[in-house]
């Protein structure tokens, strides 16, 4: 293992994060506050509570997931897409490092950034609502696994994308709708029965449900399913990355 190289990549990526501190750190916090103002005040005044939890608190896990997933994808994809775009990828390809080390550096940094933001949002939300966490360890497990798996997905997108447009298209057209329709701001039990069934095909439902369970001890789907879903998703991303690096797809001609 070339740990020095992993650290070099990791540090390089974290440097960029701190260079764009306002953009990457402050803006999720501000947008979360806006969600609280809009959803908490406007909708919360009509929906008092869901299954014994105040609406303001109920949306916290969903809000964290929304930001964490979006940030993990964008960090993971941009980190590897940018060197491809400006040509500095030559250095990675010619260095004495293997692909596992490259992934560790980039995805490690992307996931850590997403984790930071998740924690920031959690802290911000305590300014608006009272939060108790029923299963803190499981909450952390879900949070970390989400950060890692979606950073991996972002990494795949970054390698796949041939333009900035393609880089944006999957997060914008696929992931964001899935998160919004995945029960971030409502309980699935509030939907008509047909939609409850359809919703179960949305993988994000399992994540948000599991994460919410860690907070309030209640879930839309059994927590075992949630863990299985995220484990399968993580392994799937790892398998795709393994194949990319073996074949050199979109990296080495």
């Amino acid at each position: 293992m070339n740990w020095t190289a992993v650290y070099a990549i990791f540090r390089f990526e974290m440097n960029r994060f701190f260079r764009t501190f306002m953009q990457s750190f402050i803006s999720p916090v501000i947008s979360t506050s806006l969600y609280f103002v809009v959803f908490g005040a406007a909708i919360g005044s009509r929906i008092q509570e869901i299954e014994g939890v105040s609406y303001g608190a109920f949306i916290v896990p969903g809000l964290i997931m929304l930001s964490v997933i979006t940030q993990a994808i964008s960090n993971g994809s941009f980190g590897i897409y940018f060197p491809k775009f400006i040509g500095t990828i030559y250095e990675l390809l010619s260095a004495p490092i293997n692909f596992f080390e490259i992934v560790l550096g980039y995805v490690g940094a992307a996931a850590l950034k997403a984790l930071f933001i998740g924690v920031m949002i959690l802290v911000t939300s305590t300014l608006f609502v009272d939060i108790t966490i029923a299963h803190p360890v499981m909450m952390l497990v879900f949070l970390v696994l989400t950060c890692v798996s979606f950073s991996l997905l972002g990494f795949i997108l970054g390698i796949w994308a041939k333009s900035f447009e393609q880089l944006q298209i999957v997060p914008l057209l696929v992931v964001t709708p899935l998160i919004f329709l995945g029960g971030s701001f409502y309980s699935i039990s509030m939907l008509p029965p047909v939609w409850q069934t359809i919703t179960l095909f949305n993988p994000v439902v399992y994540l948000i449900s599991g994460f919410r369970w860690a907070f309030f001890g209640m879930a839309d789907v059994p927590v075992g399913w949630s863990l299985l879903a995220i484990a399968v998703f993580t392994l799937g991303c790892l398998a795709v990355i393994g194949w990319i690096f073996k074949s050199g797809w979109r990296l080495r001609s």
């Binding site: 020095t4 190289a5 390089f12 060197p83 250095e91 260095a95 004495p96």
Partner: peptide
Amino acid sequence: PQEVNLEPFEKVRNTVAFSRGLFG
């Protein structure tokens, strides 16, 4: 390399140190 491929926002010293780290 033939093309001038460099990270535009990185500082000179950091980018050189990064290369050294990359090579272990």
